[in-house]
């Protein structure tokens, strides 16, 4: 696929970074504000969609099946499972326990393992959506 016009490319350059940052913002505040891992996955994947649509897959040398994104997808779930499994074997002997210190409610670093779960699911959802997009678009 070839890309779109210069105007779209320029606007893209301006906004994609912001969208991506916004995704990172939601993911880190997933346990404090509405919206969490799944919404973040969609936002971050959306940033990538815009890039691919504006610049075209030829310049980015994308193939129908990208190793990187599928590995990221598996890694996301794997981190999630390892975090949950750690609780079972090391800490409390109960699957899925929140074993890190909870901190003060409302602080950025609080609520134990939940932010880590959020990040893992965010990676997984973003990579999965991007994979689907590639399979349909290219």
């Amino acid at each position: 696929m070839i890309g779109m016009t210069l105007i779209l490319k320029k606007i893209n350059q301006l906004i994609v970074g912001l969208i991506f940052l916004y995704g990172i913002y939601i993911i880190t505040h997933g346990h404090l504000t509405p919206g969490g891992c799944f919404a973040v996955g969609a936002v971050i994947a959306g940033a990538f969609f815009l890039l691919v649509l504006a610049y075209g897959s030829d310049i980015l040398k994308l193939r129908k099946r990208e190793e990187g994104s599928s590995v990221a997808e598996s890694t996301g779930i794997f981190i999630f499972l390892v975090l949950a499994f750690t609780a079972l074997i090391i800490v409390t002997r109960i699957f899925f326990t929140n074993y890190l210190p909870k901190g003060i409610t409302g602080e950025l670093i609080s609520s134990g393992v939940i932010p880590l779960y959020n990040i893992a699911v965010g990676i997984e959802v973003a990579a999965a959506l991007f994979n689907t997009f590639l399979a349909l678009y290219l």
Binding site: S70, V71, S74, T75, I77, F78, L81, A84, F85, L88, R93, I94, F95
Partner: peptide, 21 residues
């Protein structure tokens, strides 16, 4: 009791490990 979740964790982990490695 504590062995019950293994029935879900292990096949799930296997599926992911196979996709990764």
């Amino acid at each position: 009791n504590s062995l019950i979740p293994l029935f879900i964790i292990l096949p799930l982990a296997t599926a992911i490990l196979i996709m990764l490695f």
